[in-house]
């Protein structure tokens, strides 16, 4: 057990206050405040371009021009000590097309857990990650010769290497079939339950929202809601998270309009 991962029980895995991000000429995130609890799956949902990927990049520490407070696992986001503790999947699969699946994972595993002494443990982690994403039959195929969904699974497998305390997954199930999606969500729940890991997962697909413990609903760089799926449905009197989301969007749009007309 790592020393610095000991923490007060109530400390959230991610805590943001007044989080603002500027990309190019635009303010992409505007003063967000939220917490992501430990050991749970938090879904990040919102329309295309609302800033989901930007928020995830800020949490991982690869986004420039971040202001406000953003604490991740008890450190400011981007702290060097976090680099072994966060597994990150970018939205576009980021793997080497001219390496096989196993060679890709071997390399990233050697970066996470270097040294000859760790070789056996690495091999075990690589094999487990390949099994987790159901690519055992393709372990020796070049990543460039895989289908789109298979490539994104290789990218996901990289994030599963080692035992990250926080997994940040940017649309990990996009373009996958229902069976595989179900299996991956089962895997996510297992990771949260058995390893006590925290997962932050963005998605476009609203039925996936139902599988999260908590949801962050975003729109145009602002947070519409930060709640459990049940609470969201109750609050808006909707049957599904999708309906609840649409309700909240309409509400926000209407509020925006009245603000404009009263101005």
């Amino acid at each position: 057990m790592m020393n610095y991962s000991s923490r007060p029980a109530e400390e959230p895995a991610v805590r943001a206050r007044d989080l603002t991000v500027v990309r190019g000429p635009r303010t992409v995130l505007r003063g967000l405040g939220f917490s992501v609890p430990h050991g749970q799956i938090t879904g990040l949902l919102g329309p295309s371009g609302c800033g989901k990927s930007t928020l995830m990049r800020a949490v991982v520490g690869t986004q420039a021009k971040v202001t406000g407070t953003l604490d991740v696992l008890g450190h400011p986001a981007g702290h060097p000590g976090l680099r072994t503790r966060i597994g990150y999947v970018t939205q576009a699969p980021s793997v080497y097309d001219d390496l096989t699946v196993r060679q890709n994972l071997d390399y990233f595993a050697a970066i996470l857990d270097p040294g000859r002494a760790a070789a056996a443990r690495r091999a075990e982690h690589v094999t487990r990650a390949i099994t987790d994403v159901d690519l055992t039959g393709h372990a020796d195929t070049l990543a460039g010769n895989l289908s789109g969904g298979q490539r994104s699974r290789v990218s996901l497998a990289v994030a599963l290497l080692g035992t990250p305390d926080l997994l940040v997954l940017d649309e990990p199930t996009v373009g996958l079939d229902p069976v595989l999606r179900r299996d991956l969500w089962q895997l996510f729940h297992t990771i949260a339950a058995e390893r006590g890991a925290t997962l932050l997962i963005s998605s476009h697909v609203m039925d996936e929202a139902e599988r999260c413990h908590r949801l962050l609903l975003m729109r145009a760089g602002e947070l519409l809601a930060d709640d459990t799926p049940d609470a969201l449905r109750d609050r808006t009197g909707s049957d599904t998270v999708e309906a609840a989301f649409l309700h909240l969007v309409d509400e926000a749009t209407a509020a925006g309009r009245t603000k404009e007309t009263t101005r």
Partner: peptide, 9 residues
Amino acid sequence: TLERLLAMP
């Protein structure tokens, strides 16, 4: 892959 590597140790 560079972004991913630099997010790693």
